[in-house]
């Protein structure tokens, strides 16, 4: 679906006359492959280059060196521009700054309108998109009256209506409260599972990365770690070094292991910990009681 080869991106600093003063390397030799239908999470602290990377996939930024190929189309080729933006949709961090319409359904229709989709089909697409993210009841509302989580679901619906093969979510939950965060992640997972859309989730909340098929951790423009969530989170020391969170239960298991308990690495849930500790199944405990 997406092939990124030796990607380098330099941001240029210019002085007042517009002459190049210096540059800052935001992406440094990144290689990354995403397969159709995958759920990918990219973790990293602010300034690690993860958002810059995301904007390359949608052709909002172009490589300084290296190539980005989306569904067989090179992003550097201008002819592919609109096709790529349609196939790889993007949801941004601030829900207020990406909703254009003044009524939910009109915003969802904005993408198809730009693509020149016939009116009747726009309505079909809008209805379908609203249904997928479960906001049909909000279709006539003004975006200003919605909660953060609802606004982000409107943004997602707006992307779905463009019938993308892949959706990049660039820190979609950073400005939301816990319930809004759950709403958005649930929607993203459903898209992946039910609609079979490739998802690339960029976040700094590790608990959102747990559901991913593969996790990439970025640091200073490079990919510092990669693997399944279990593989990545089990390296507690490295995660701490990169100043990222690890699930509390993984930390707890790690601490217990340090204190001499014989536990396997990469425990991600309370049940896994209970199993590893040799505790009985919950139903057995109830039967006894």
């Amino acid at each position: 679906m997406i092939q990124i080869r030796n990607l380098i991106h330099d941001y240029l600093r210019r002085d007042e006359e517009g002459n190049v003063e210096g540059s800052h390397r935001a992406i440094d030799h990144v290689n990354l492959d995403v397969h159709p239908g995958e759920f990918i999470a990219i973790l990293g602290h602010n300034g690690s280059g993860k958002s810059t990377l995301a904007k390359h996939i949608n052709a909002l930024l172009y490589p300084t060196e290296g190539t980005v190929v989306v569904d067989g189309m090179n992003t550097a080729d201008e002819q592919n521009l609109w096709k790529i933006r349609q196939e790889a949709g993007m949801v941004f961090q601030n829900p207020d700054n990406q909703i254009i319409g003044q009524v939910v359904e009109e915003d969802v229709g904005f993408g198809p309108e730009n693509m020149g989709v016939p009116t009747e089909e726009i309505w079909e697409r809008v209805n379908e998109s609203l249904r997928i993210v479960e906001i049909e009841h909000l279709r006539k509302k003004s975006p200003n009256r919605l909660s953060g989580g609802q606004k982000q679901r409107v943004s997602i619906a707006g992307v779905i209506a463009m019938h993308p093969k892949c959706i990049i979510l660039d820190e979609p939950t950073a400005m939301l409260d816990p319930s809004g965060r759950k709403e958005v992640i649930r929607a993203a997972r459903a898209l992946n599972k039910v609609e079979d859309i490739t998802i690339i989730l960029i976040t700094h909340y590790m608990e959102e990365a747990i559901y991913a098929d593969r996790v990439f951790v970025m640091d200073e423009g490079r990919i510092a770690m990669q693997g399944t969530p279990r593989e990545v989170f089990s390296d507690v020391d490295r995660m701490k070094e990169l100043r990222l969170d690890v699930p509390q239960v993984t930390l707890l298991a790690d601490e217990l292991r340090r204190k001499g308990l014989d536990l396997p690495a990469g425990i991600l849930t309370a049940d896994e910990l209970a199993d590893a500790l040799g505790l009985k199944e919950e139903t057995d405990v109830r039967k006894q009681a």
């Binding site: 933006r85 359904e105 009109e106 904005f110 993408g111 198809p112 020149g116």
Partner: peptide, 20 residues
């Protein structure tokens, strides 16, 4: 932000645009 979001959703002016 808005300009970027509009571009990401294939906005390129009024040409070839349809209406919902």
């Amino acid at each position: 932000d808005l300009a970027m979001a509009m571009e990401a959703r294939c906005y390129h002016g009024g040409e070839g645009r349809t209406r919902m």
